[in-house]
Structures are given as C-alpha cells and as structure tokens.
Amino acid sequence: MISGTAYGVALNDREQLAGLGEALNHAPYGKPPVAPILYVKPRNCFAAAGSAVALPDDIAEVAVGATIAIERTAAGPHLARLAIDLFAPHASFYRPAIAERCRDGFLPVGPATAVPDALSTIEIVTAINGAERHRWSFARLVRSPDTLARDIADFMTLAPGDILLCGIAGDAPVARAGDRIEITATGFAPLSVTLVAEQAR
C-alpha cells in the first residue's frame, strides 16, 4: 500500500497555532516553531480503506485527523490520497508522541489519485456515523503543500513512495469504538473505516 515512509506535520493549522498563543513563548517551547514539525507514522499504522481499526483499551477516544497525503513517485507528477491520522489527543507537543500516534492501524489511507487542482483550498469533511462532525479547508494551513515541500527539502529528501500528510486540524473531532468514520473531499473516493474495541487480552 505505502512502500516508503509516512511523514506528518504537526501544528500546521493556523487556528490551532493561534489558539496556543502565548504558551509557545514559554517553557517547554521557549519560542514559536521555526521549521516544519515533522513526525513519522510507521508501517504498523498503515490501514486500507474499509478497515476495522482496533482501538486499544487505554485509548477511549481517538482524534480523527482527516487530511490529504501527497505521495512522491519515481517519475511523473505526485499523487494524492485521502488519509486519516488517528491519534490519542495530547496537549503537549514537546516530545515525540509515539504512544499517542503510532498504534496499529492508526493511519488509514485511500487509493492514490491525481493531485486536485485546488489543493491549497480544498475542503475535507468528516462524518461520524453518518452525521457531519467536522469540515476544514487547507486554506487554514500555516504552510501550504507547496511551501511544505520546499521547506522540508531544505533538510531532507522525500523519496518515491514516501507520503506527506499536509496537516491536521487542531479541532479534529474524536471518535470511539463502534463509530463509523467517513471522510470526503472533492476529487477523491470517500475513505471510511470503523473503530472496534480491541479484543480483550
């Protein structure tokens, strides 16, 4: 499904960054971020469209980070996939959120398709159990997909097969075991998964 590394970008939502306000100037941060804040979603997270994602018993609610991933290719233009960055909500961005973000199945991704023309202002809608719960636009991104690509290339190279999740809304809705999640955006097939309680150990 994904042959390379999946990278995400934290605090790339202008509204979320504004909401943190003065806190960014105090410990443990000291100052607002300068470069893109990247994280990795490792391969155990990858899940196909339609998957049943098991919610571990220590995570009652997951944030549903509906976004678009840009995929590098060896030749030809980049591709795009709808993606859901699932994570345990966390208030601190000081240390890498491995236990929060890297659970099995916590990155459902849809099939690759052409990058939409209006990527920088695309709207992504999240429905949970059939009801719209969240809607956001890439116009909210601190760094647009093009700017991200340029600023990341300053210190590392994305290889063919790597994907980059362009950002997560700070107000991403939460979901629980039993919920059906569907995200949609113009130009993509809807991406849906269900959350199930992990089998008792």
């Binding site: 990278y7 934290a10 605090l11 443990p28 941060y29 000291g30 971020p33 300068v34 470069a35 893109p36 804040i37 990247l38 994280y39 990795v40 961005f93 000081y94 240390r95 890498p96 959120a97 210190f155 590392m156």
Partner: peptide, 12 residues
C-alpha cells in the same frame, strides 16, 4: 526546537 524534540531537522 522544542517541538516533538528531538525534531527531524536535527536527527533525520
């Protein structure tokens, strides 16, 4: 930087 430290710009 003190965001997801050590950040990838330092270590990747």
């Amino acid at each position: 930087e003190n965001y997801y430290r050590p950040n990838l710009r330092v270590k990747n």
